[in-house]
Design a protein around this nucleic acid. Structure first.
Lengths: 343, 343
DNA sequence: TTGTAAGCGTTATCAG
DNA sequence: CTGATAACGCTTACAA
């Protein structure tokens, strides 16, 4: 049986409240008393029981990380997010509960509200497309369960979020491809349910319009952010008689799929086709040629969001409920000027 | 204020113990009573407070997943493990706490024992090289905190583990490369602290010996399981005047690094150099050419381990404390016969 | 089959 | 500065 606060009190000859004071670094404890208690703690090898603390405080001291995981596939993106959340949460004494689920389903289907009702977590980090379930957000709001959204669709409501400059980032990339001389630039869309997919696509068209290059919808394919979608999309795009000389993907994972498809077709990157991605996850440097992409500082987005959430949980009104983190172009070897001008 | 079990009891006109019985599906409750309670629960929208339950039961209903993460890098391996642990744990009503740390450090340095002392978790899944810290295991043992090890070094002690047939797997792969005609096969070792690294290396030498091909230590490089290590190792191996015609890596992530290095050198895979990995993580199919590798069913290993742990936690003596999951050869396009026989 | 009452190990109120 | 004592919301002997 491990020692309890009561044992410590007995051993130190003080009340349990005094021990509790020492444990929580509260003021109004005489130094001698504090020392006495410390000694008792040391002697008994006492460690406070967090389960009891949580119940007494009515807080779980944990945050839930919700992410979309229909295909039960590993995602580079979510792992970077997780690392960021974990680091900040742990430093603040919070545990992190991973909660993969199908965010396109009714929220009650995946036990999110339950997680809060059961008091398993004090708040949530919601990754896209969680905020499409407006009902979920309203429920959480009513329950006074704080949450921070990552790259949400809706930015009208006051609910906190952290996002990246998706539209501008995609516009930069497209402009860069145009500057290289590309005119037929294929595009692979991301998961329709996310706003990032739409914003990036909009950025692509912004640049096209800006350059006076007509938007050609036959060069667009729908994806779901996963590798295989990129591969399929590329196989389809490369079959077009006057095939695109560059393919820009809504994320890196699909871009990796595109690269494989290009190779499978017997073509070369960037000689025959340039390929660009978005995110700059580890994978972007782990394939050949290394991928030109738009860097989205996922780790930083996650840490920012988590700090925000923890402030909210501690009733420290944050300075800013909304953050926009800049993206930037990362030029590697998967892009170059077009060799064969399209017919 | 959310409803408590007391409110439900009041509302249903029964005692709280009866409500508790219904909540936990205990027998000896008359059907009518049960129905009455259910109705009250429904009416009040009652959800049991897990924090209270945990304290009362003296269990956190959570398991900790310990993994090595010195470089704060995403690892494909750990994500597959996580998915497996998460799935089984959740189904059993357990939460999963991710705990990245430096497993080569003294265990107390990374707060592992604390996690248990604080009762944050009931047990652990330990990934390699956690079990090198024998002191940690003994401490946990003394605290009666159950744990299951993944691919541990030590298999003499009775402590439960789940592992793969690393040595045999590596031997198969090497044999396959030898059968293709390769004689100078480079090898990139994994993280020295793990047994898998040694076993796989042993398998490599087994096959060499078996085939009467001399073991040449100039063809061996040390790695740490990460991408960059593979890349560096390959650059070094490819500089050898009579360079190896094949490179076998202790894991896929390093193999991906090798592939990039080969391309950087201007050589072709598998035309000039064959490359083989180990694990069969998602990355193996996301690079070009797709990687020939030894499949280690990581997800299955993780689910097996978690089921084992949960049995242990529930005081259900498992049939088997030790599991060995078979590996198998996955031949893809990164290997072929040597074109240029070495001098 | 149901209920009473005593924990579980903290925190928190409020009086000294 | 310090200490009784009552929560916190559930489980669980033990009794009825």
């Amino acid at each position: 049986m491990p020692a309890t606060i009561r044992d410590v009190a007995l051993c130190a000859g003080v009340s349990i409240k005094t021990v509790s004071r020492v444990l929580n670094d509260e003021p109004f404890v005489r130094d001698e008393t504090r020392a006495k208690v410390m000694r008792a703690i040391e002697e008994l090898g006492f460690v406070a029981n967090l389960l009891a603390k949580r119940l007494a405080k009515g807080q779980s001291l944990a945050i839930g990380l919700l992410y979309h995981n229909v295909h039960r596939s590993s995602s580079h993106y979510i792992q970077d997010v997780q690392q960021g959340v974990l680091d900040v949460a742990r430093a603040a004494g919070y545990a992190t509960l991973m909660h993969p689920c199908d965010l396109t389903q009714p929220s009650d289907a995946c036990g999110i509200v339950e997680l809060a009702s059961q008091r398993q977590v004090d708040g949530f980090i919601l990754t896209a497309p969680a905020d499409n379930a407006r009902g979920l957000l309203e429920t959480l709001d009513q329950m006074s369960v704080p949450f921070v959204r990552l790259t949400p669709s809706d930015r009208e409501s006051a609910w906190p979020y952290v996002t990246a400059t998706d539209r501008a980032g995609a516009c930069h990339m497209t402009r860069y491809l145009l500057d290289l001389g590309h005119r037929r630039i294929g595009y692979v869309l991301g998961l329709q349910e996310t706003r990032a997919a739409h914003d990036r696509f909009a950025g692509y068209r912004d640049a096209l319009a800006e350059a006076g290059v007509g938007y050609d919808e036959t060069l667009v394919r729908f994806g779901n952010d996963l590798f295989d979608a990129g591969r399929d999309a590329a196989h389809s795009l490369l079959q077009i008689p006057t095939r695109p000389t560059a393919i820009f993907c809504s994320n890196d994972e699909m871009a990796a799929g595109v690269c494989v498809a290009v190779h499978e077709t017997g073509l070369h990157i960037p000689g025959d086709v340039s390929v660009a991605g978005f995110d700059d996850i580890a994978l972007a440097r782990q394939i050949w040629p290394p991928l030109t992409t738009v860097r989205q500082p996922i780790y930083e987005i996650a840490t920012t969001a988590t700090r925000l959430l923890i402030d909210l949980l501690g009733h420290r009104p944050p300075e800013n409920l909304h953050h926009e983190i800049p993206t930037n172009l990362v030029i590697r070897a998967s892009t170059a000027g077009p060799c064969h001008l399209p017919t």
